[in-house]
Amino acid sequence: DETGKFLVLALYDYQEKSPREVTMKKGDILTLLNSTNKDWWKVEVNGRQGFVPAAYVKFL
């Protein structure tokens, strides 16, 4: 149950560059965990948590 969690859509592919980031593919649906930083949002994708560039995702 994803109640209270926001979902975001990956607009572009992103390859993680550090262990704190996660890789996503364009079209992936991600669970948004934290968006307090304007540049990097914490998400969960494929069972992994990490950061992606905020400009690469949008709210569903």
Results as ranks from 00 to 15, higher is better:
Lys5Asp: 10
Glu16Ala: 15
Gly4Asp: 10
Trp40Ile: 03
Trp41Val: 09
Asp1Arg: 07
Asp28Arg: 02
Asp13Val: 02
Lys58Asp: 11
Phe6Leu: 13
Asp39Trp: 13
Ile29Thr: 07
Tyr12Val: 12
Asn34Cys: 10
Glu44Asp: 09
Lys58Arg: 13
Ala10Val: 08
Lys38Trp: 06
Leu33Phe: 04
Arg20Ser: 14
Lys58Met: 15
Glu44Met: 09
Ile29Asn: 03
Gly4Asn: 13
Ala10Asn: 01
Gly50Asp: 00
Leu60Pro: 06
Glu2Arg: 10
Ile29Val: 12
Ala54Val: 06
Tyr12Lys: 10
Thr3Ala: 13
Thr23His: 04
Leu33Gly: 01
Asp28Pro: 00
Thr3Asp: 14
Val52Asn: 00
Ser35Pro: 07
Trp41His: 03
Trp41Thr: 04
Val8Gly: 10
Ser18Asn: 12
Val22His: 03
Leu30His: 02
Thr36Ile: 09
Glu44Gly: 06
Val52Thr: 01
Lys58Ile: 15
Phe6Ala: 12
Lys26Ile: 06
Gln49Tyr: 08
Tyr12Glu: 11
Thr3Ile: 14
Gln49Phe: 07
Val22Lys: 01
Asn34Asp: 15
Ile29Ala: 04
Tyr56Leu: 13
Glu16Gln: 13
Thr3Pro: 13
Glu21Ile: 03
Gly50Gln: 01
Arg20Trp: 15
Lys38Gly: 10
Gly4Val: 15
Trp40Leu: 04
Lys58Ser: 13
Asn37Phe: 07
Glu16Ser: 15
Trp41Ala: 04
Asn46Glu: 11
Ala10Trp: 03
Glu2Ala: 14
Leu30Phe: 05
Lys42Trp: 15
Asp28Thr: 06
Arg20Val: 12
Ala10Leu: 03
Asn46Met: 09
Pro19Cys: 08
Leu7Ala: 06
Phe51Gln: 03
Asn37Gln: 09
Pro53Gln: 02
Lys17Ala: 12
Gly47Trp: 02
Asp13Phe: 04
Trp40Asn: 02
Ser35Gly: 10
Lys17Val: 09
Phe6Cys: 15
Glu16Cys: 10
Asp28Gly: 03
Lys17Trp: 04
Glu44Val: 07
Asn34Gln: 10
Val45Tyr: 10
Ala10Arg: 01
Leu33Asp: 01
Lys25Tyr: 09
Lys17Ile: 08
Asp28Asn: 06
Val57Cys: 10
Thr3Trp: 12
Asp28Phe: 04
Trp40His: 03
Leu7Tyr: 15
Ala54Tyr: 02
Pro53Trp: 03
Tyr56Pro: 00
Thr36Cys: 15
Leu32Cys: 09
Glu16Ile: 05
Met24Thr: 03
Val57Ile: 11
Leu11Val: 09
Gln49Cys: 09
Lys38Phe: 07
Thr23Ser: 15
Gln15Lys: 12
Thr31Gly: 06
Lys42Thr: 07
Gly47Ile: 03
Asn46Trp: 05
Gly4Glu: 13
Tyr56Ile: 07
Ser35Phe: 10
Glu2Phe: 05
Asn37Ile: 06
Gly50Lys: 01
Gly50Arg: 01
Tyr12Asp: 08
Arg48Val: 08
Val52Phe: 01
Lys17Tyr: 04
Arg48Leu: 07
Thr23Asn: 07
Leu33His: 05
Asn37Thr: 07
Lys5His: 14
Thr36His: 12
Leu7Thr: 08
Leu7Glu: 08
Thr31Ile: 15
Lys26Cys: 06
Gly27Ser: 03
Lys38Tyr: 08
Leu9Ile: 15
Trp40Met: 06
Ala10Met: 02
Glu21Thr: 08
Arg48Gln: 09
Leu9Pro: 00
Lys42Ile: 14
Asp28Ser: 06
Asn34Leu: 08
Tyr14His: 04
Asp1Phe: 10
Trp41Pro: 03
Thr3Val: 12
Glu2Thr: 14
Glu2Gly: 14
Met24Asp: 00
Leu9Thr: 10
Val52Glu: 01
Leu30Thr: 01
Phe59His: 10
Pro53Ile: 03
Ala55Trp: 08
Pro53Val: 02
Thr3Cys: 13
Lys58Cys: 14
Ala10Thr: 03
Asn46Tyr: 08
Leu9Tyr: 13
Leu11Trp: 05
Tyr14Ala: 01
Thr3Gly: 13
Lys17Leu: 10
Gly47His: 05
Lys42Asp: 04
Asn37Asp: 15
Glu16Trp: 05
Val52Gln: 00
Thr3Asn: 15
Gly47Asp: 07
Gln15Asn: 13
Thr31Asn: 09
Gly50Leu: 03
Thr23Leu: 02
Ala54Asn: 03
Pro53Asn: 02
Thr36Ser: 15
Arg48Asp: 04
Gly47Cys: 06
Val45Met: 12
Asp13Gly: 05
Lys26Asp: 02
Lys25Cys: 09
Ile29Trp: 05
Trp40Phe: 07
Thr23Glu: 04
Glu16Lys: 14
Gln15Ile: 15
Lys26Leu: 05
Glu44Phe: 05
Lys17Cys: 11
Val22Arg: 01
Lys42Glu: 14
Val52Lys: 00
Ser18Pro: 04
Phe51His: 05
Gly47Ala: 06
Lys5Pro: 13
Tyr12Leu: 11
Pro53Asp: 01
Glu44Arg: 07
Lys38Val: 11
Ile29Met: 07
Gln49Pro: 07
Asn46His: 12
Leu9Cys: 09
Ile29Leu: 08
Lys42Gln: 12
Pro19Leu: 10
Leu11Phe: 04
Tyr14Met: 01
Phe51Ile: 07
Trp40Gly: 00
Leu11Ile: 12
Ser35Leu: 07
Leu30Met: 15
Tyr14Phe: 08
Ala55Asn: 14
Gln49Leu: 08
Lys42Met: 15
Asp1Tyr: 07
Ala55Glu: 13
Val52Gly: 00
Asn34Lys: 07
Lys5Trp: 09
Asn37Val: 05
Val8His: 03
Asp39Ser: 11
Ser18Trp: 06
Gln49Asn: 08
Leu32Ile: 07
Ala55Gln: 11
Val45Glu: 03
Met24Cys: 06
Ala55Leu: 10
Val43Phe: 01
Pro53His: 02
Val45His: 15
Pro53Thr: 02
Ala54Cys: 06
Asp39Arg: 10
Asp28Glu: 10
Val43Leu: 03
Trp40Ser: 03
Asn46Asp: 14
Leu30Asp: 00
Gln15Thr: 15
Ala54Trp: 02
Val57Met: 06
Lys42Ser: 07
Pro53Lys: 03
Asn46Arg: 11
Gly4Ala: 13
Glu2Pro: 14
Asp13Ser: 08
Asp39Ile: 14
Ala10Gly: 03
Gln15Ser: 11
Gln15Val: 15
Phe51Val: 07
Lys42Cys: 12
Asn34Ala: 09
Pro19Thr: 10
Leu9Gln: 11
Gly27Ile: 01
Trp41Cys: 05
Gly27Cys: 06
Glu2His: 15
Val52His: 00
Ser35Glu: 07
Ala55Val: 10
Gln49Glu: 09
Lys26Val: 09
Asn46Val: 05
Asp13Lys: 02
Thr31His: 11
Leu7Pro: 05
Leu30Tyr: 09
Lys5Met: 12
Gly4Lys: 14
Lys26Trp: 03
Arg20Ala: 13
Gly4Leu: 12
Thr36Gly: 10
Ala55Arg: 13
Lys38Asn: 11
Gly27Glu: 02
Leu60Ile: 15
Ile29Ser: 04
Gly47Arg: 04
Val22Tyr: 02
Gly27Phe: 05
Gly50Cys: 02
Gly27Gln: 02
Phe6Gln: 15
Thr31Tyr: 12
Ile29Phe: 06
Met24Ala: 02
Leu60Asp: 07
Met24Gln: 01
Ser18Gly: 13
Val8Asn: 01
Leu11Asp: 03
Gly4Ser: 13
Leu32Thr: 02
Lys42Val: 14
Tyr12Ala: 11
Ile29His: 05
Thr3Tyr: 14
Lys5Tyr: 13
Pro19Gly: 09
Val22Gly: 02
Glu44Pro: 00
Phe59Pro: 14
Thr31Gln: 10
Leu32Arg: 01
Gly27Ala: 03
Trp41Lys: 02
Tyr56Glu: 03
Asp1Pro: 14
Leu60Gln: 07
Leu7Trp: 10
Glu44Tyr: 06
Val43Lys: 00
Leu32Gly: 02
Lys26Gly: 05
Leu9Val: 15
Lys38Met: 09
Glu16Thr: 08
Glu21Gly: 11
Lys42His: 12
Leu30Ala: 09
Asn34Glu: 15
Gly4Ile: 13
Glu2Trp: 03
Asp39Glu: 12
Thr36Gln: 14
Asn46Pro: 05
Val43Ala: 02
Lys58Gly: 15
Leu30Cys: 10
Pro19His: 10
Ser35Arg: 10
Ser35Asp: 12
Gln49Thr: 13
Trp40Arg: 03
Leu11Lys: 08
Thr36Ala: 12
Ala54Gly: 04
Val43Ser: 00
Asp39Ala: 10
Leu9Lys: 08
Val22Ala: 05
Thr3Phe: 12
Ser18Val: 05
Ala54Met: 05
Phe51Asn: 04
Trp41Gly: 00
Pro19Tyr: 09
Lys58Gln: 14
Ala54Phe: 02
Leu60Trp: 11
Thr36Asn: 13
